[in-house]
Design a protein around this nucleic acid. Structure first.
Lengths: 227, 227
DNA sequence: GTCGTTTATAAACATCTGTTTCAATACACA
DNA sequence: TGTGTATTGAAACAGATGTTTATAAACGAC
């Protein structure tokens, strides 16, 4: 076959290619994680040669890092993180935060299709990018939650107890994404629509509010050593 | 096909080898999961030829399945699941359940070194064994939690709300194992000792008890649509 | 046109994966 | 003793992985 067919699908379009690779990588990595996600499948989905990945991103790890950063950028554009305003009701703020967190991990939309899943994979099998991701994404959001919980709780409440409460709340939220497979098998339908997510957020918020604001500052934490 | 060794002292060492392979497989699978765990590393750790794995367990999947079942057996021997006795205080039972669950996922001891981690991996990247695992291990334990929560809650409380609460509680517990890497990076030290785990269990129990028993049966679940 | 540079691709590379093959054992029993 | 069967282990298999190489094409500039 000399150069018979022009095969003019050359399409000089590096930006388009880079973009396609990034999108495909987001899909693959968010589904399979970094290790199990293969460069060859990414290149297949992006309809580019395998070597293109290394040409544009140096290595698989470099591509992964750019996917994480791009997803982070995307998130900040679309969903500004919840903040406790000056005169805002703290209890209401807690409800907003929980709804935000649940939507972040559960909602599959064009706005943030991958970051939640990517972070879930990072938590299970951390890569070098995890520390950076925590510093950029997780830390600010978590600090805001701690501030809100502090405002909701009794003024003299122990700081470490408040920190624990914040972690408890995060646990309730991410549970429904992390362990969705098991939850579904237990007969509970993990919500995916805005309305159903809002209902779940309401349930978590109510439990957390009663649990936090009902605590007496001086009360000893329940000790399970009772017989 | 490996015959069960007859009564006569045939077996020069097959049981020892099988046992070594099972132990090594437990360590490898619990650390890396099924996909990323390699048969060659298992055979290396067990000081056994690669072919021995397939000789004794047919395949990698067969070995994995036996590891799961063995871990399950081990758990039931060492830690009988919590049950709500007839006259027992429901609130106390909830504390016991939460402590049990936390110890299950966090405590690294000779008694159950792997099952918690194995299940964590199953939740992220489910294999064919997940359904069986849920039916055998997770379902009974979760049902007991739901029973306890029902006993703690107001008698006329909505059944689906109670189910949600049970899931919330599970979420708080497993969070500290699933997302330990992130939690540590947020400055919170995930407990590993009996005492520290008991303290964490106390905090979760107190929050849950106030959140559950403080709920009014007729109260509407908090709606985040309030302005 | 002919340079030089950037981009694209097929092919090869080295290494890993789970599994199989096949010859060499070690043992129980005759 | 010899025979038969269970076990062992080195090597090979077929396939996948991330990455590199060498060749070829498409451009901008002269």
């Amino acid at each position: 076959m000399a150069h018979a067919a022009p095969a003019s699908s050359r399409e000089r379009d590096p930006e388009g290619r880079k973009e396609r690779i990034l999108t495909a990588a987001g899909a693959v990595f968010s589904k399979a994680g970094f290790d199990a996600g293969s460069v060859r499948e990414i290149s297949r989905r992006a309809r580019v040669n395998v070597a293109a990945v290394n040409y544009y991103f140096d290595s698989k790890a470099g591509l992964y890092r750019e996917v994480l950063l791009a997803a982070h950028r995307q998130l900040l554009e679309q969903e500004p993180p919840v903040t406790l305003q000056g005169g805002q009701d703290a209890q209401e703020a807690l409800g907003s935060w929980i709804a935000f967190c649940l939507r972040f991990v559960l909602l599959k939309r064009a706005s943030h299709p991958v970051l939640g899943k990517l972070m879930a994979h990072e938590m299970r099998q951390p890569t070098a990018a995890l520390s950076e991701l925590v510093k950029l994404v997780v830390r600010p959001i978590f600090d805001e939650l701690r501030r809100i919980v502090t405002a909701v709780a009794a003024p003299s409440m122990d700081k470490t107890e408040i920190e624990m409460w914040a972690h408890h709340i995060v646990g309730m939220c991410v549970h429904y994404e992390h362990n969705a497979e098991v939850i579904e098998r237990l007969g509970f339908s993990v919500p995916t629509t805005e309305d159903a997510i809002a209902r779940l957020a309401g349930s978590i918020t109510a439990l957390a509010l009663r649990g936090i604001s009902g605590a007496q500052a001086g009360a000893k934490t329940l000790e399970p050593s009772s017989s």
